[in-house]
């Protein structure tokens, strides 16, 4: 099946989703995202996303544990994630309904 460059595999959204159930460090985020979506984020992509999200105030770093630093969602991050997921849910629901009506899904 061809990929359509879905928004749902955007590294920023995946990282926010991974942090939705509590703080995690880089390695744990990578594993969680792989289990969650099947997408394996490379180290450069992961830290690019973390840096971007931190810059936008959507996540914050907690004190480092050994060499690893956990990250957690900020209030703004939780709100942005909720809004994004609701939009995706609405789009997904309507898209699936339309496919059903058109008979493309059995």
């Amino acid at each position: 099946m061809r990929s359509i460059g879905a928004r749902s595999t955007d590294p920023g959204l995946l990282v926010l989703t991974s942090l939705a159930d509590g703080p995690k460090h880089g390695y744990a985020i990578t594993l969680d995202i792989e289990q969650l979506s099947g997408v394996k984020l490379g180290p450069g992509t992961l830290y690019g996303a973390l840096s971007r999200l931190e810059g936008r105030g959507l996540i914050e770093a907690l004190p480092a544990e050994d060499r690893r630093r956990p990250y957690r969602l900020t209030g703004a991050g939780s709100a942005a994630l909720a809004q994004e997921l609701q939009t995706l849910e609405r789009v997904a629901r309507r898209g699936l309904e339309r496919l059903r009506v058109a008979g493309a899904m059995r």
Partner: peptide, 28 residues
């Protein structure tokens, strides 16, 4: 992020695709 990235690499065995990803990340 350098120390964290090193810790991440220590925790996994990076494949060539991870090196390419790091190069792309560095450029970005």
């Amino acid at each position: 992020y350098g120390e964290e990235l090193r810790a991440l690499l220590d925790g996994s065995s990076p494949r060539p695709v991870a090196v390419l990803d790091l190069l792309r990340g560095a450029l970005a």
